[in-house]
Amino acid sequence: MDYGIVEQRIFLQDSNEKRNLEEFLKKEGIKLDKNLDYTMGIYDAGKIIATGSFYKNTLKCLAVSSEHQGLGILNKVVSHLLNEQYARGYTHIFLYTKCNTAEFFSYLGFNEITRVDNLVVFMENKPHGIQSYAKELSKQKVKGHRVASIVMNANPFTLGHLHLIEKAANENDAVHVFIVSEEASVIPFKIRYELIKRGTQHLKNIIFHKAGDYIISNATFPSYFIKDDKNVWKHMPG
């Protein structure tokens, strides 16, 4: 059955390869994500029949042509990507997939974190990853009638960010500030984190957190599933 089938990397710097991939994904209702570290394809007689990509430790743009579904080809795509991920040192893997394929990935050891009905499912390969993350956060729980939280990238930390934190601190007993830790910004996380801490040291009711893998940034949001740009902004985190 594998005669004539080739599994290989796709180099998006090649305009022809990129155009062919975009056309293939479009037929499957997926938009090629702009943030990708690695992309592969499976070809039959020179024609692409399946593909998958990843950005850091998140699998993206997974698709199999409608004519080749149910033949175990998606399993080949995922295995290829996971092997490449492990070779790069990633063991905690996330993926975005359409709602109708989430069950398939559960058989491969992925667990649902959350979903937007009829749009996308967010999954991970750790059985209790999100629960463990929540448990760690609970250790920093503070007492108070009014507790607020803010998620920010602060690239860079500005007076606008400071005003937001000060306002929240004045209106609440405690404020949890989650700083996006993904290294997709001009200013590295460690510097952004330190600038925010120093800039708010006069406030005594602030609890700082490294956002980790579960606070989604624009770089990892699966906009390729959303055809209407207005919907991208509707679902985009602030």
Results as ranks from 00 to 15, higher is better:
75 N>M: 10
66 S>N: 12
68 H>G: 05
99 C>L: 12
92 H>W: 07
67 E>Y: 04
67 E>G: 11
71 L>R: 10
79 S>F: 13
80 H>Y: 12
85 Q>L: 13
58 T>Y: 06
81 L>F: 08
85 Q>S: 13
77 V>Y: 04
92 H>F: 02
52 G>Y: 00
99 C>S: 13
100 N>W: 13
94 F>N: 00
76 K>R: 15
55 Y>N: 15
57 N>E: 13
50 A>C: 06
51 T>A: 14
54 F>L: 06
52 G>K: 10
87 A>H: 01
52 G>E: 02
61 C>H: 04
54 F>K: 06
88 R>V: 02
86 Y>A: 13
73 I>G: 11
57 N>Y: 01
96 Y>A: 00
78 V>W: 14
57 N>I: 09
60 K>I: 00
74 L>I: 12
52 G>M: 02
57 N>L: 00
100 N>S: 14
88 R>Y: 11
65 S>I: 04
54 F>Q: 03
62 L>H: 04
98 K>E: 07
99 C>D: 10
96 Y>K: 03
57 N>K: 01
90 Y>A: 09
69 Q>S: 11
72 G>F: 10
93 I>P: 13
59 L>M: 15
93 I>R: 02
95 L>Y: 08
87 A>W: 00
63 A>F: 10
56 K>R: 11
50 A>F: 00
94 F>R: 08
79 S>I: 07
77 V>L: 03
81 L>S: 01
70 G>E: 00
80 H>I: 07
66 S>Q: 12
70 G>N: 04
62 L>I: 14
84 E>A: 09
67 E>M: 05
50 A>N: 12
63 A>Y: 02
97 T>S: 08
67 E>R: 11
72 G>T: 05
51 T>N: 13
59 L>D: 03
59 L>H: 13
55 Y>E: 04
58 T>L: 11
82 L>Y: 13
100 N>L: 11
91 T>K: 08
88 R>G: 09
83 N>H: 06
79 S>P: 05
91 T>P: 04
88 R>P: 07
91 T>S: 14
95 L>M: 11
91 T>N: 14
61 C>S: 15
75 N>Q: 07
65 S>F: 04
69 Q>F: 00
56 K>L: 07
64 V>A: 05
56 K>V: 05
90 Y>M: 04
64 V>C: 10
72 G>Y: 03
56 K>T: 11
96 Y>E: 14
50 A>E: 00
94 F>K: 02
86 Y>V: 14
81 L>D: 03
71 L>Y: 10
